[in-house]
Simulated assay, not measured.
Amino acid sequence: MCDLVVHDTASCYAFARFGRRWRLCVTEHPRLGGELVPGGHAEAGEDALATAVREVLEETGHRVRLLPPPLPERYPHPATPSVWHVVSMPAAADSRCDQRHVHRDHIAVGVVDRPFALYGTPEHTVHWVERSALDRLSLPEDTRVLAGELFEMIDRVAAVRPRPAVDEGLAAELLRRQEEDQAVRLVPVAERTPDLMERWLAVDEENTGWLRELIAERGWPGEAMVGRQAAGAAWLLAQHADRQPDFQQGCLELLSAAVTAGDADPQHGALLEDRVRIARGQQQIFGTQLTEGPDGTLVPYPVANPDEVEALRAAWGFQPLERYIEQVAASVG
Score class of each variant (00 low, 15 high):
residue 305 N to H: 15
residue 271 L to S: 08
residue 263 D to A: 07
residue 297 T to M: 03
residue 265 D to Q: 04
residue 296 G to Y: 00
residue 274 D to K: 11
residue 284 Q to I: 14
residue 290 L to E: 06
residue 271 L to Y: 10
residue 274 D to P: 01
residue 283 Q to C: 08
residue 315 A to C: 09
residue 305 N to L: 13
residue 281 G to S: 10
residue 285 I to A: 05
residue 303 V to H: 03
residue 300 P to A: 11
residue 301 Y to F: 15
residue 315 A to V: 09
residue 311 A to E: 14
residue 288 T to M: 05
residue 286 F to P: 04
residue 277 R to D: 02
residue 298 L to W: 11
residue 296 G to L: 06
residue 272 L to A: 12
residue 296 G to C: 07
residue 276 V to E: 07
residue 280 R to L: 06
residue 290 L to Q: 03
residue 290 L to N: 05
residue 306 P to K: 13
residue 266 P to F: 02
residue 302 P to V: 09
residue 305 N to Q: 14
residue 294 P to C: 07
residue 272 L to V: 01
residue 280 R to C: 03
residue 285 I to E: 08
residue 290 L to R: 05
residue 309 V to G: 08
residue 308 E to G: 01
residue 292 E to N: 02
residue 265 D to V: 00
residue 313 R to Y: 04
residue 293 G to F: 00
residue 276 V to R: 05
residue 279 A to R: 14
residue 295 D to V: 01
residue 272 L to K: 08
residue 269 G to Q: 10
residue 287 G to N: 04
residue 307 D to A: 15
residue 298 L to K: 12
residue 315 A to W: 04
residue 290 L to A: 09
residue 281 G to D: 05
residue 285 I to C: 00
residue 282 Q to M: 10
residue 283 Q to S: 12
residue 289 Q to N: 07
residue 279 A to L: 15
residue 276 V to Y: 05
residue 271 L to Q: 14
residue 300 P to S: 02
residue 312 L to Q: 12
residue 286 F to I: 13
residue 293 G to E: 09
residue 299 V to Q: 10
residue 267 Q to C: 03
residue 291 T to H: 11
residue 267 Q to H: 04
residue 312 L to F: 13
residue 263 D to H: 12
residue 299 V to H: 03
residue 306 P to V: 12
residue 286 F to W: 11
residue 270 A to R: 07
residue 263 D to L: 06
residue 288 T to H: 03
residue 276 V to A: 08
residue 263 D to Y: 12
residue 263 D to I: 13
residue 307 D to L: 08
residue 302 P to H: 07
residue 295 D to N: 10
residue 311 A to G: 14
residue 308 E to K: 13
residue 291 T to Q: 15
residue 275 R to M: 06
residue 293 G to V: 06
residue 290 L to H: 10
residue 307 D to E: 15
residue 269 G to T: 08
residue 279 A to W: 00
residue 302 P to E: 12
residue 314 A to S: 15
residue 264 A to D: 13
residue 313 R to W: 08
residue 281 G to H: 11
residue 286 F to A: 01
residue 305 N to E: 15
residue 315 A to Y: 01
residue 297 T to N: 11
